[in-house]
Amino acid sequence: MSDDADQTPDPKPSDIDAELAIMADVVSGGAAEDDPESGSSSEDDPDTEGHPAGAVDRAIEDTPETDQPPEADRPPDAEEAGKVSTVSRAVSWLATGAAVTILVLWGTGTFDVPSIREIVLREDSADPSPSVTATAPLTGAEVTPEQAPPPPPPEVQRGDPSFIEIPAIGVRASVIPLNTMENGELEVPTDFAQTGWWQGGPEPGERGPSVIAGHVDSVNGPAVFFALEELVFDDAITITRGDGSSAVFAVRSTLNVTKEEFPSDLVYGETDDAQLRLITCDGGFDQGSYTGNLIITAELVEERPPPESGAIF
């Protein structure tokens, strides 16, 4: 016997056409039942002799319809129910024919379905995908000591104030150092034409509030800060220091308070920049003194170096 005899023959077109004819006859119902008007049956038709469709038709005819009641006991719509039952059987046989066709095609090699062993071998022989190394998310650039920004330079020590000038109200006066008294209040100049600087605070131009106080009047008339209440926003105040340099401040606010409600934090508290406070008496006069204070707040806007001549104003 030759090697060709051992090979499985390919399905012939006639066999596939026969299978399709079976399914078409089942759906149309032409091969399932005999036509009473023609008087012929599939058994008498010579063209169907030996055809698989004949066996399918006889199997459908011989199947007992146990789920159908007798003709006399059927309800009025029993004929319609019988038609539905016939269609259901046709659909069932159609599904069976489709399954048989799939098995035939599979057996002849038409469907190329790999076995589990082939899948495993294919996966083992596949090229491995490139590996990916996970890295931690970046949380910011690492700064070494060499890359760290240099610390800010230390604040330059300014000289003590020696002179104050307020052009808007015509003030030109000397500045003397002041301390606090035993009761915690700031001392006042003994000369009504002078002003005094609280030397416990920063020099004018250094960070923080520099405090300068002066009288509003005396028994002889107006004193150095008599017109202080006339200052308005942005008026200039120039403080000259002992080394001849100067700091220029601009007025920012005016505040009238009673002595009992004196805002110590506002006047003496720390600030982020260089500021100035001017204080004088205000309010009513009771038992030889005023009952309140007038406070001017200002901030540094300019610093000037000493003049080349070295003259001190």
Rank of each mutant, 00 (worst) to 15 (best):
S246Q: 10
T139Q: 04
D45W: 04
S85F: 07
G184V: 03
M1A: 12
H51M: 04
I60M: 12
F225S: 01
D273T: 15
V113D: 05
S28F: 04
P177H: 04
A81K: 08
I237Y: 01
E37M: 12
F313D: 09
D25R: 07
D4N: 11
A72C: 04
P154S: 05
P64D: 09
P150H: 03
T110F: 15
G283N: 07
G244Y: 00
T144A: 09
I176M: 05
A55T: 12
G109W: 11
W197N: 01
F262I: 05
D35A: 13
T190R: 13
G221C: 09
V87M: 15
A99K: 14
S162T: 06
T144R: 08
G283D: 08
Q68S: 11
T48L: 13
P130I: 07
V156K: 10
D286L: 15
V104A: 09
Y290D: 03
A298E: 05
P64K: 14
V91M: 11
V156N: 04
Q194I: 01
T238K: 05
D217C: 06
P36A: 07
F226H: 15
T63I: 08
E299R: 13
V216I: 15
G269E: 08
S289A: 13
S264W: 12
E299S: 13
N183Y: 04
A98N: 07
V56N: 03
I16S: 03
P222E: 14
G288M: 08
W197P: 01
A250P: 01
P114T: 06
S309W: 00
A136Q: 10
P128R: 14
